[in-house]
Design a protein around this nucleic acid. Structure first.
Length: 378
DNA sequence: AATCCGGGGGC
DNA sequence: GCCCCAGGATT
């Protein structure tokens, strides 16, 4: 091997290697790309919706939401004009609900400040709420051909392997390294296709760990990790913190066939979604916490003398990324609907109505349990 | 730099 | 159970 031949396990990207990566990847993308609705004719609005939905969410999960959402809000003006509750309702079940709030407010910015036209540059897009480095790069490259990278989780893994990057990718330093390497790879034409090809490769070929399918990889001959047999070991990640355990009390306050629901605060966990009133159990027993919480819901009024106090109807656990929550359910009947105390946004609704109002997956589990338990107890 | 924010798929 | 996913905002 001549001394000038670049070593395959080097993480330097010489001109010849980038040329081959660009050519092989684009050719593979032309032959193997999936038929996805947002790819048919990329418009800023539809590309934007798809990119926001695809944040931390897999393609198969997004598809039905994407169709429903565009049917309900066909244009950015329709989205901007819609009530926030409608937007959130169409997001229910998809998770990360701040995405829906930012989507709505960004639509209003586009309509009011830019007369309904999206900014046509990375920098302009980057200033909209909910649009970060990745999404701005994706829209700018796909819709406007601007030479910007779109570094998502797939690209982090693909490029870390191509370059044999030992830096942890879940740190600012590691991300910056990968981003710089990705910029060097970007072609000057078909940038949007190249960005999508990198992501598509990560999703379908250059998969995590031992799921990598190197035999069918279009850039296997340009991959430094494969040459040094480190594909499974890359990318490197810093370990994450252990999830917290929490107990929550959830109170089903019933009058006739309706239950008291309230809207959660707009920021934080399940922001803006409806719920049966909940409270975190700080210490001690859930039933004591439930009694205290019921008194609080009644805003200091004395419970009816003959009321029997809250009755436990069971518990369900819900696993989130950083938390494991056990809901302890308590059921209570009240004689008067005026008993809803100091709750800002509250509403009496049947369980079926509530399911249509926009509730989290966790709250759906609670309602399921309540319906099942109610049949047994009565 | 670390944490928070959901939910589902795959193994 | 674990890891991952077309990330962004906040501290």
């Amino acid at each position: 091997m001549p001394a000038t031949m670049p070593a395959a396990d080097s993480n330097s990207l010489d001109a010849g290697r980038t040329t081959r990566i660009r050519r092989n990847l684009l050719r593979w993308y032309d032959a193997h790309q999936r038929d996805l609705p947002w790819r048919k004719k990329p418009q800023p609005y539809t590309t934007w919706i798809s990119e926001i939905m695809l944040q931390q969410t897999q393609v198969a999960t997004v598809l039905p939401y994407y169709r429903r959402f565009l049917k309900a809000f066909p244009t950015v003006r329709a989205l901007a004009a819609a009530p926030s509750g409608d937007v959130l309702q169409h997001w229910a079940g998809l998770g990360y609900y701040s995405r829906a709030r930012n989507l709505h407010s960004a639509a209003q910015v586009v309509c009011q400040a830019f007369d309904g036209r999206f900014p046509d540059s990375y920098e302009g897009l980057r200033g909209l709420p909910g649009i970060g480095d990745y999404t701005a790069g994706a829209i700018a490259s796909i819709c406007f051909g601007e030479r910007q990278p779109a570094v998502d989780g797939n690209v982090l893994r693909v490029v870390a392997r191509l370059t044999n990057c030992d830096e942890p990718i879940n740190t600012p330093a590691g991300k910056a390294l990968i981003r710089a390497a990705t910029v060097e790879m970007l072609p000057h034409k078909r940038v949007g296709d190249f960005n999508q090809a990198l992501m598509e490769l990560g999703a379908r070929v250059c998969r995590p760990g031992s799921a990598a399918d190197c035999d069918n990889c279009p850039v296997r001959n340009q991959c430094a990790a494969l040459a040094s047999k480190r594909v499974e070991a890359l990318p490197v990640k810093n370990r994450k913190t252990a999830p917290r355990e929490q107990d929550w009390v959830v109170v089903a306050l019933q009058h006739q066939d309706a239950f008291l629901f309230r809207r959660r605060p707009t920021n934080g966990l399940w922001g803006g979604m409806w719920e049966l009133p909940t409270a975190i159990v700080q210490e001690g027993r859930a039933d004591q916490a439930a009694s205290a919480f019921v008194r609080e819901l009644h805003a200091g009024r004395q419970p009816t003398r003959r009321s029997t106090g809250p009755r436990a109807f069971g518990s369900v656990t819900h696993q989130l990324t950083h938390r494991r929550i056990t809901f302890h359910g308590f059921h209570l009947r009240t004689r008067h609907r005026s008993d809803l105390g100091g709750i800002a946004e509250a509403q009496w609704a049947t369980l079926d109505d509530a399911r249509a109002m926009g509730i989290s997956t966790a709250m759906q589990k609670v309602l399921d349990l309540l319906e099942k338990g109610a049949g047994e107890a009565e």
